[in-house]
Structures are given as structure tokens and as C-alpha cells.
């Protein structure tokens, strides 16, 4: 395996981490005003992700940074093409981040309620838009011979792209609800499980439609199909587990679904990183978009040392904060 492939995989890993971790962060954020009926309940919900959301968001920043470092042309073309959606994406991240930090620092119910809705809205935007980006990545967009985006905003929001957005949105809502079922007790937990049971059907249906209309990778058709089936199976399986209230397993499988979703997308485009709808020879590949072998070598050493380290100490965080949050907990935020 050459370094270009390694970095393609690594960026896939970073996005997979982002989908799993920010998946439940955004899900919890969106569910906040709906599942929390009073102030204490809402604080409990916020505190389930309180210690970890910021570290989770770094997965996205690192994925972006890794794209910039390893495939500058990919980063440049993609980010300038998705200009307006990314403004909305950033707007969401800002409102949500500030909201989580500021929300409980004043007692006024109006203040808190306003931030709760802004947190929900700020979580909704990236949850929807990441799916729009990924769907467009698979379908391809009008990039010209210099890999510069030659379309307009409307090209970015095709029905297929919106379907992708709804998929990530509902998958994240499922992930968030399952996470809440693990981290809370009593009423919130019951509501979260009930919500997860319903939203799963919608997510499942959307995913099937999306996959049915997904272009198949020309490289390896069998693997493409296997990945799709696996994604659907891992997503369907918790139905049985949830009836038995095996929430830990349900959450694990939902996380696996998100990983497989990212893998499916990355496998579908490989060895391209950017597909041009104007002609195959305009595609950017892991070779034409990449940095020099020298830069990739240095970055590989950095990644091989620090990614495992990050996994260890982030894992440790989840261990420290493994307990459920209840009305009797010392609620910080």
C-alpha cells in the first residue's frame, strides 16, 4: 500500500470518528429542547456530552487539516465548491459551541431557553450538511479541468444530495438518542428509547433509498455491495436488541453503521477523491491531488505516533465520565 492510499484511509478513519462521536453530540444537541421537559432535565442532557463534545469536534478539524496536508487540491476544490453550505455549517458549529458553554452561566429561563434552541439549530445544520457533502462527493459535481467548481449553489442541493443530508440527520438523531439512553435514567431514558425506536425506521428507509441510487464503485463492485448490505444489517440489528433493552449493544451497532456508511462512501469514490460530472479525466485522484511523498512521509510518522495516543486519552475520558447523569448528580453545566 502506498502512502497516498494510507492517507486516503486515514482521512476516512478521521471522518468515521467524526460520524460516530459528533453523530451522538449533534443528535443529543438536536434532541435537547424536545426530550428535556424542564431545566434540570435539559441540564442533564447537556451534561451527558459536556465533558466530551469539544474533544469530539477535533475529529472534524483534524480530518480537515489532514485533507489540507495530504491532498491540498482536494481540500481546496471541495471547500471552495461548498462555499455557502460551509458558511451555514460554521454558523451551526459556532452557535452550538458557544451555546453549550454559555447556556447555564445565567439563570434567566429566557436566556437558557434561547440557547437550548440555538444549540438544537446549531446541531441540526452540520448534521444535515455533512450528508449533503458526502452524497455530492459520491455523485460528483461539475469540476473543470483545473478541478475548480464550475457550478452554482443549486448544483449542491440536488434531491440526491438532500437525501444524503436526511440520512446523516436521521442517523445522527438515532445515535444521539441511543447515547442518551446509556447516559441518563428514568423519564429521559424512556423518551430517548421511544424516540430512537421511531426514528430508526425513517433512517433505515432513507438509507435504503440512498444506497439504491448510489453509483457503484468501478474498482470493486462486490465490495461495494457487501459494504451496503453490512451497513443496513448493522443498522437493522438493534431492533431486536432494543426490545431486550440491550442499549449498549444497540449503540455499538449504530456506531458501526456510521463507520460503515463512511467506509461505503470512501470505497465508492476510491481511487478518486473528487469526481467531476464534466468528464472522467477531470477527476482528482489520490495521486493527482496529493502532497509530495516527502510531506506524506513526515505526516505519516506524526499520525502513527499521535493518533493512537489520542485514542488512549480520549478513551480514558469516557472511562472517567462513564456514570449516568441523574437528578442527584453534581451537574456542572
Amino acid at each position: 500500500m502506498d502512502l497516498n492510499t494510507l492517507w486516503f484511509l486515514l482521512i476516512g478513519v478521521l471522518f468515521a470518528g467524526f460520524f460516530v462521536l459528533e453523530g451522538f453530540d449533534y443528535g443529543v444537541g438536536m434532541l435537547l429542547p424536545f426530550l428535556g421537559k424542564d431545566d434540570t432535565e435539559r441540564r442533564i442532557i447537556i451534561n451527558t456530552i459536556g465533558p466530551v463534545w469539544d474533544g469530539n469536534e477535533v475529529w472534524l478539524l483534524t480530518a480537515g487539516g489532514a485533507m489540507f496536508a495530504a491532498f491540498p487540491a482536494w481540500y481546496a476544490s471541495l471547500f471552495s465548491a461548498f462555499y455557502i453550505p460551509l458558511v451555514a455549517f460554521l454558523l451551526g458549529l459556532i452557535l452550538r459551541g458557544v451555546g453549550l458553554e454559555f447556556r447555564s452561566k445565567d439563570k434567566s429561563p429566557k436566556w437558557r431557553n434561547l440557547w437550548d434552541w440555538l444549540i438544537a439549530f446549531g446541531s441540526f445544520l452540520p448534521a444535515l450538511l455533512i450528508g449533503v457533502v458526502f452524497a455530492n462527493l459520491v455523485r460528483g459535481l461539475p469540476f473543470n479541468s483545473r478541478a475548480i467548481f464550475a457550478g452554482g449553489v443549486l448544483d449542491l442541493v440536488s434531491p440526491f444530495a438532500l437525501l444524503g443530508g436526511l440520512c446523516s440527520l436521521t442517523l445522527f438523531l438515532t445515535q444521539g438518542a441511543l447515547f442518551l439512553s446509556l447516559k441518563t435514567e428514568a423519564e429521559i431514558r424512556t423518551r430517548a428509547i421511544r424516540f430512537a425506536t421511531i426514528i430508526r425506521y425513517l433512517a433505515f428507509a432513507l438509507l435504503i433509498v440512498l444506497y439504491a441510487t448510489f453509483p457503484v464503485s468501478s474498482e470493486n463492485r462486490i465490495l461495494s455491495q457487501v459494504l451496503r448490505v453490512l451497513t443496513l444489517v448493522t443498522f437493522a440489528a438493534p431492533g431486536w436488541l432494543m426490545r431486550k433493552e440491550r442499549m449498549g449493544w444497540s449503540f455499538a451497532l449504530s456506531s458501526l453503521t456510521l463507520v460503515l456508511f463512511v467506509v461505503t462512501v470512501f470505497q465508492a469514490i476510491f481511487p478518486n477523491v473528487l469526481i467531476s460530472s464534466l468528464g472522467e479525466n477531470f477527476n482528482l485522484t489520490i495521486h493527482t491531488a496529493s502532497s509530495s511523498p516527502y510531506t506524506l512521509t513526515i505526516m505519516s510518522f506524526v499520525a502513527l505516533i499521535f493518533v493512537p495516543l489520542v485514542l488512549v486519552y480520549q478513551g480514558w475520558t469516557y472511562w472517567i465520565f462513564r456514570k449516568r447523569i441523574t437528578r442527584n448528580s453534581n451537574i456542572i453545566y
Binding site: 478539524l61 496536508a69 481540500y75 502532497s291 505526516m299 506524526v302 489520542v310
Partner: peptide, 19 residues
């Protein structure tokens, strides 16, 4: 400049932001 400029940004995220 991506070949040069991207590296410190990615290292910043991996080394510092996570921490």
C-alpha cells in the same frame, strides 16, 4: 502551498487541539 502549509495545521489539530 498545501504541501507545506497543511502539515503544521494538521499537526496542530492532532498534537494540540485534541490535547
Amino acid at each position: 502551498v498545501g504541501d507545506i502549509f497543511g502539515a503544521p495545521l494538521a499537526i496542530e489539530a492532532l498534537l494540540a487541539f485534541f490535547l
